[in-house]
């Protein structure tokens, strides 16, 4: 016996209706179907333990990575390569510093609040980090990163990258405390 699923009326804000109608046209579906698709996605987002209001920000940062040329690499492969490269070499340190600087400059152009965007960028890209904390008060910024798995070499290179990124945003490093898996860095504009 076929079962017809019941329908329920769902209220939406009137000022969103026009924009939603545009979305439905672009996706080639009716408004009713769009609502159904969105609700299905919302359930999926909830299962992934995320929130729909964060989805646009997530994708914005992912797109930023795409523009900057982010590549996925196994973390232990990266650690191995950093180990083989000898992180004391100024050549390697400069690479990471300059890459960070370029990232910071791009974030400054793209986002109104590049510091907050950088925090989101780190959270998205560095899953070996258990904690990323970016605070700024007045012209002082503090970045704290903690990882239970990051190697000493990886921590050192991340420090260079962060230093470069903040320089690209317009901050100068005033202090740094770096141990295996932990970074506490302070900057001043």
């Amino acid at each position: 016996m076929a079962v017809t699923k019941g329908k329920k009326l769902v209220s939406v804000s009137e000022d969103l209706l026009d924009a939603a109608a545009k979305v439905s046209r672009e996706e080639g579906v009716s408004m009713g179907k769009l609502v159904e698709i969105l609700l299905e996605q919302a359930l999926k987002i909830n299962k992934l333990k995320y929130r729909s209001d964060e989805m646009a920000d997530f994708f914005d940062v992912l797109q930023t990575n795409r523009v900057l040329g982010g590549l996925f690499v196994p973390t232990d492969v990266l650690d191995f390569m950093l180990d083989k490269c000898q992180v004391n070499s100024s050549q390697l340190q400069n690479l990471w510093l300059e890459s960070g600087r370029w990232t910071g400059k791009y974030l400054t152009e793209k986002f109104d609040d590049p510091l907050t965007a950088f925090g989101r960028f780190l959270k998205l890209t560095r899953w070996d980090l258990n904690e990323v904390d970016v605070k700024h008060v007045g012209n002082i910024a503090k970045i704290q990163c903690v990882s239970t798995v990051m190697s000493l070499e990886s921590t050192a290179m991340l420090a260079k990258f962060v230093e470069g990124a903040l320089a690209g945003i317009g901050y100068k490093m005033t202090s740094t405390d770096s141990l295996k898996g932990m970074l506490i860095m302070t900057f001043k504009r």
């Binding site: 996925f72 690479l95 890459s99």
Partner: peptide
């Protein structure tokens, strides 16, 4: 799967 995102120019040079 313990992947991380690295900027490509950095990855190629490293």
């Amino acid at each position: 799967a313990s992947f991380t995102l690295v900027l490509e120019s950095l990855l190629y040079d490293t």
